[in-house]
Simulated assay, not measured.
Amino acid sequence: MAAFGTVFMPKMALATFENNSWTASGIVPSDKLEFHPGAHVLHYSSTCFEGLKAFKHADGSVNVFRMDANINRMAQSSELLNLPAIDKDQLGQMIKDVVALYADDVPLPPGSMYIRPTHIGTEPAIGKAAAPTESSLLYVLLSPVGDYFASGAKPLRLLLEEDGMRCAPHMGMIKSGGNYASALGPILQARKEHDADQILFCPNGDVQETGAANFILIDGNEIITKALDSTFLHGVTRDSILTIARDAGMTVSERDFSVDELIERAKKPGTEAALSGTAAVLTSVGTLIHQGQEFTVGSGEAGETTQKLRQMLNDIQWGKAEDKFGWLTKV
């Protein structure tokens, strides 16, 4: 089995922004892009992307999950990076067109078709360190994927990092490659020195997010997670899980909470912690590492509520439960 996200469909949807307008989108080979070596993206990181999935239902239909939310977030990222404003309707049509082209190749559950819209600045201008690109490329790549944790997800080990941040605070809500690059060094160091799977960034003791996923704590019937602000990514999976939890009668507390509170609650029997994201869906956290000490979260095993919420989300995605929130777009 190829590693997650390393197999691509041979064609993609693409549109360009030039002379102050978007061209009509087209379907082109996905094995190369052509732009100048002086392109703005290569020197000043004018780039953002999204990650969403299409699912094949038992009736053979193909459905994209929460496409509108991802398109809105990409529009926001583009605006905050001063990239040309995307045409949200055009991007939605590009996603539907390329997914429809490969509808027969969408894997059955628990697999899916991973969709990666990407927006990059292409103006050849290395003198524009303090000015935005005037041209750009928008494209939609597809990658058929299996379950992110094909061998079974064992609970993760998280290192709590109170000194560093995942990225610059004003960049947190932008889904841009530079944010992931800035977190990579600390993550690799945490793996090497602490056998940690990920870092939970907690600048000055404020529990935020990991390098690639949002963090939630489950204490009985209550979900606790940081309230949305500009410092961290507004995850679509996070929002989906919280919506499902509220609908199921759980209490959702979106607020600031500290490392001290996290560790104290984690020690209680029945407490659960999890990471949410498009690829990992909802994955249990079993161990917190802080200042050389290890703290087991609840039983240390995959949490019952975590697994229940994950299944409820999957059932909507896979067409096994009612789409009561209007999250699916049929292709």
Rank of each mutant, 00 (worst) to 15 (best):
M1C: 14
T6W: 09
F8Q: 00
K11G: 00
M12K: 15
A13G: 11
L14P: 09
L14K: 15
T16P: 04
F17R: 12
S21C: 15
W22T: 13
T23A: 12
S25R: 10
V28R: 09
F35W: 00
G38N: 13
L42P: 13
Y44N: 03
L52W: 09
L52I: 08
A54M: 02
A54P: 07
F55G: 10
D59W: 10
D59P: 07
V64A: 09
F65W: 05
M67F: 06
N72P: 05
M74H: 07
N82P: 03
N82C: 14
Q90C: 07
Q90L: 13
G92T: 01
D97N: 08
A100G: 06
A103H: 04
V106G: 06
P107W: 09
S112P: 12
M113W: 10
K128E: 12
A129L: 05
T133D: 13
L137M: 15
L138A: 14
L141P: 09
L142G: 01
D147W: 01
S151F: 14
A153M: 12
K154R: 07
P155C: 06
L156D: 02
L156G: 03
R157W: 05
L158P: 03
L159N: 06
L160S: 02
L160E: 01
E162D: 07
D163Q: 14
A168L: 14
A168N: 13
H170P: 10
I174E: 10
S176T: 15
G177L: 10
G177D: 11
N179I: 03
N179F: 08
Y180G: 03
L184T: 10
P186F: 00
P186A: 00
A190T: 11
D195C: 13
A196W: 06
Q198L: 02
L200D: 02
L200F: 01
N204T: 08
T210H: 01
T210I: 03
A213G: 02
F215Q: 04
I216F: 04
I216E: 00
D219M: 04
D219R: 08
T225N: 06
H234E: 15
S240Q: 10
L242S: 05
I244G: 10
R246A: 13
D247Y: 15
G249K: 14
S253A: 09
S253E: 10
R255G: 06
F257V: 05
S258M: 03
V259I: 15
L262H: 12
A266W: 10
E272R: 04
A279I: 09
A280F: 04
V281I: 11
G292V: 11
G292Y: 04
F295V: 15
F295A: 10
S299P: 00
A302I: 00
T306H: 02
L309E: 01
R310K: 14
M312P: 12
L313R: 12
D315I: 06
G319Q: 02
G319W: 04
A321L: 05
D323R: 10
F325W: 07
T329R: 03
V331C: 13
